[in-house]
């Protein structure tokens, strides 16, 4: 996943698309966009920073998980098996990116009563266990099964990227040098969050074009 900080306008469309696509309860935002202020008046900058599970190369959540519910697929996507998870929340304590959530009781957007849509999409498997961004793995897998390319074909791309109005969020295969995101990384300067932790986050933030050679 690539987030171009020069393009993100903080519209939160991606967060809404994520909630709509994954039917997460109130208080749970797998995709978040932080509104960060840096500096002091009059030298102040405002930066919108999309975050979520970074699908790390070496995920600390996977290391601590006592039940092996947290796993990592060959394509790098970090997953949670809701049938194995015991809801101990230890992985939440291990994730430096604050990307994981646990909800024990049903919550609805408008008080005690579920809306018809919430009733339809309620999933009891997700109560009492830890949840997080899956990079819309169901959409990615369905797209791959049809021969589509995630990141290039929207029908095989996570909902947040599909919905991004400014093209700030991009998705794809980093291992493929011809992919859009591999080219973006080659053409721009980027950072990853909490790099010193050594987790190898899979979320790259573009902040400027690459200096001329």
């Amino acid at each position: 996943m690539v987030a171009d900080l020069r393009r993100c306008v903080g519209c939160q469309t991606c967060t809404v698309a994520c909630k709509e696509s994954n039917a997460t309860p109130p208080g749970v935002q797998w995709r978040r966009v932080f509104d960060i202020e840096a500096g002091e008046y009059p030298d102040v900058r405002r930066v919108f920073v999309p975050t979520g599970c970074q699908h790390c190369d070496d995920p600390p959540c996977l290391e601590v998980c006592p039940s092996t519910a947290t796993g990592k697929r060959a394509d790098g996507i970090v997953t949670i098996d809701y049938e194995l998870c015991i809801g101990c929340a230890y992985c939440i304590m291990a994730c430096p990116y604050e990307a994981r959530y646990k909800v024990d009781d049903e919550r609805f957007a408008f008080g005690d009563d579920a809306t018809p849509n919430e009733r339809k999409r309620a999933d009891p498997r997700m109560l009492g266990v830890v949840t997080k961004c899956t990079f819309c793995v169901d959409i990615v897998d369905a797209g791959l099964a049809q021969g589509l390319v995630p990141g290039r074909d929207m029908a095989a791309t996570p909902a947040c990227v599909q919905s991004c109005i400014s093209g700030a969020l991009r998705f794809g295969d980093l291992e493929d040098p011809r992919s859009g995101i591999a080219q973006l990384l080659a053409e721009n300067q980027w950072f990853r969050m909490h790099e010193a932790e050594g987790t190898g986050p899979g979320f790259y933030y573009l902040w400027d074009k690459a200096p001329p050679l």
Binding site: P66, G87, A89
Partner: peptide
């Protein structure tokens, strides 16, 4: 405290690193 107390025995599944 755990969310799924009746699965507590799953805690024994990951001695390699947990």
């Amino acid at each position: 405290e755990i969310g799924k107390p009746w699965r507590a025995f799953n805690v024994f599944f990951h001695p390699q690193t947990s």
